[in-house]
Amino acid sequence: MTDEPLVLGIETSCDETGIGIVRGHTLLADAIASSVDEHARFGGVVPEVASRAHLEAIVPTMQRALDDAGVSLADIDAIAVTAGPGLAGALLVGVAAAKGYALAAEKPIYGVNHLAAHVAVDTLEHGALPEPAIALLVSGGHSSLLLVDDLAHGVTPLGATIDDAAGEAFDKVARLLGLPFPGGPPIDRAAREGDPEAIAFPRGLTAPKDLAAHRFDFSFSGLKTAVARWVEARQRAGEALPVADVAASFQEAVCDVLTAKAIDACRAQGIGTLVIGGGVAANSRLRALAEQRAEKYGIQVRVPRPKLCTDNGAMVAALGSHLVAAGVAPSRLDLPADSAMPLTIVSV
């Protein structure tokens, strides 16, 4: 349908410069420039390096997105941009760029929440999202369980990590095992050859006393330390490291907790839809285990394809399109970037 809004989304909250274009729920372009290789030798994203890369990448990435979609900025109905949460300096480049585009093309601008965008992107794959739904968002920067009752106006946080994000644990364990950064894909690959039950790594915040206070919260710091202890003990004993078994057992511990708590949240709220997003949602074991457990309770699991799970501009465009369709008012031109933007705010 051509009367659906044509929306452009800009994402710069971490190390990906993403520009996506959607019409309604249809993805027209998803252009990405990543500075991940520049961060690899530091073992994590360096904010200033990411910000410099965004500034260099934004104009060419925009051109690619427009060319891929076969549209010009004059055709666009609205521009959405990640206003937070994320790295302050990185967010600022995207927000300032979005304002420049909006100002010069005389279009409305929407400053949106990155986490809500991770939920909204699923509409590009599976169509309109049933509400309410439960969302599990897991990446290098966040690990959250949310109740999505009205994606246009606000989502309700149910729980979040109390220490490391799930993706961070993947990065740190990958480093212990001599695997490259970012750690998610190489651990996923290594784990396929390993035994997930070889080593009994701890499941954070699942003991009865922890569940009382942290039913829907996560903790991955203890797991990370347990893996480090196990690896060091083998190394000190001069034994070869069974990389595949460690990777599989670690991955199983993470996926076990994430899916158990997500399914528990669905059942506690009587909700039949679970959406999973964020870079860790690209993990093959997480997807399989979530499906397997959800099936038992008749819960439908929606996970977008891996390229839409990691940070990208399409997710921001998807949320923008949802906001335009819901009649939400645009943001002001002085909208701030907010590195700690709360989940309860979907657009500023």
């Binding site: 200033e48 934004i58 300032a96 304002k99 420049g100 010069a104």
Partner: peptide, 19 residues
């Protein structure tokens, strides 16, 4: 100082691209 400096440059670049 980097963060503020980039605001002006990306504003100019994005507007130049549109126009």
């Amino acid at each position: 100082p980097f963060t503020g400096l980039r605001v002006g440059l990306v504003t100019a670049a994005s507007m130049g691209q549109v126009l």
